[in-house]
Amino acid sequence: SYYEILDVPRSASADDIKKAYRRKALQWHPDKNPDNKEFAEKKFKEVAEAYEVLSDKHKREIYDR
Rank of each mutant, 00 (worst) to 15 (best):
P9Y: 05
E49C: 08
V47Y: 05
K19I: 13
V53E: 03
K18T: 14
S13M: 05
K18Q: 08
D31W: 05
K42T: 10
D15F: 06
S1H: 10
D64T: 03
S11E: 13
L6Q: 00
A25N: 06
E4V: 10
K32V: 13
R65P: 04
P9H: 09
I5S: 05
P34D: 07
E49T: 08
I62K: 11
P34L: 14
K42Q: 13
I5K: 04
K57V: 14
A14N: 12
A20M: 03
H58N: 15
D15E: 15
F44P: 01
Y2V: 03
R22S: 11
P30H: 05
L54Y: 00
H29D: 15
E41G: 07
E41N: 10
A20I: 01
L6H: 00
R60P: 02
Y51L: 03
K57L: 11
I5A: 06
K37D: 05
Y3L: 01
D56Y: 02
Q27M: 08
Q27W: 06
D31P: 03
H58Q: 14
K42I: 14
D7G: 15
K43Y: 09
E46V: 04
E49D: 11
E61K: 08
A25T: 12
K18E: 15
A14Y: 14
R10G: 07
A20L: 02
A25M: 14
Y51S: 02
E52V: 06
Y51I: 02
S13D: 09
F39R: 06
F44N: 04
Y63G: 03
K24T: 04
D31M: 10
Y21W: 09
Y3W: 03
A14D: 14
E49M: 10
E46K: 06
K43D: 02
R22Y: 15
V47E: 01
E38K: 09
I5Y: 05
V8S: 02
A12L: 01
D56Q: 05
D35R: 11
D64V: 01
A20C: 04
N33K: 04
D35G: 13
V8K: 01
D15L: 09
V47N: 02
E52H: 10
A50Q: 00
D56A: 03
K24V: 06
Y3K: 00
E49R: 07
L6N: 00
E38H: 09
E38R: 08
P9N: 08
P34Q: 13
H29G: 10
H58Y: 13
W28C: 04
A12E: 01
H58S: 13
V47F: 05
Y2D: 00
H58E: 13
K18I: 13
F39A: 15
K45G: 06
L26H: 10
P30N: 05
Q27F: 12
A40F: 09
I5C: 06
I17M: 04
A50D: 00
D56V: 05
A12G: 05
K42W: 08
K32M: 15
E4W: 08
V8W: 00
S11F: 13
R23D: 15
I5E: 04
V8M: 04
K18P: 00
D7C: 13
E61A: 12
A20R: 01
L54P: 00
Q27T: 06
H29I: 05
F44V: 04
K59W: 06
D31K: 09
E38Y: 07
K45E: 09
D64W: 01
A12C: 08
R23W: 07
S11K: 08
E61I: 07
D56S: 07
R65A: 13
F44Y: 13
E4K: 09
V47M: 07
D16W: 05
K45D: 06
P30E: 06
N33R: 04
S11L: 08
A48K: 14
V47T: 04
K32T: 11
K43F: 08
I5D: 04
A12M: 01
D7P: 01
P34W: 13
L26Q: 15
W28L: 05
K32R: 14
E46A: 08
V53R: 03
S11H: 14
Y3H: 02
S13C: 07
S1I: 06
P34C: 09
K37N: 07
D7I: 02
S11A: 09
K45S: 11
E41F: 08
L54A: 00
D16H: 07
L6G: 00
A20T: 01
I17V: 07
R10E: 08
R23V: 15
S11I: 07
R60V: 02
H58P: 05
H29Q: 10
D35M: 11
K24D: 02
K24P: 00
L54R: 00
Q27D: 09
L54D: 00
I62Q: 13
D64H: 02
R10K: 13
K45N: 11
R22M: 15
P30S: 07
Y21I: 03
R23N: 15
A20S: 05
D56L: 02
H58I: 14
V8G: 01
A25R: 14
E4D: 13
K45C: 11
A14R: 08
A25L: 15
F39V: 11
K57Q: 13
W28I: 03
P34M: 13
E52C: 11
S13W: 02
L26R: 10
E41V: 10
V53H: 07
D16M: 12
A48S: 14
P9W: 06
P30Q: 06
D35Q: 12
E38L: 11
V8T: 03
A50C: 01
V53N: 05
P34V: 12
D31Y: 04
R60L: 02
N36V: 06
K24W: 06
R10F: 11
K32I: 10
R10W: 10
F44S: 10
E41K: 11
D16L: 07
A48Y: 13
D35P: 05
H29V: 05
H58R: 14
E61V: 06
S55V: 09
R10M: 13
N36L: 07
E41A: 12
A25Q: 13
R23S: 14
K37Y: 12
E41H: 09
K45T: 08
A14M: 15
E52P: 01
W28H: 04
R60E: 03
Y2P: 04
K42H: 09
A25V: 14
Y2I: 03
Y3F: 02
R65N: 14
L54N: 01
N33A: 04
I5P: 01
D31V: 05
W28Q: 02
A25K: 10
Y2K: 02
E4Y: 08
A48W: 14
E4A: 10
R10I: 13
K32L: 15
F39N: 07
S55I: 11
E52D: 12
Y51C: 05
R65W: 07
V53S: 03
L6F: 02
D16N: 04
E46C: 09
R22A: 15
E41R: 10
Y63W: 03
I62G: 06
V53F: 07
E61M: 11
S1D: 15
S1V: 07
A40I: 05
I5Q: 04
P9K: 09
A25Y: 15
D7V: 03
I17R: 00
R22I: 15
I5V: 11
D7L: 03
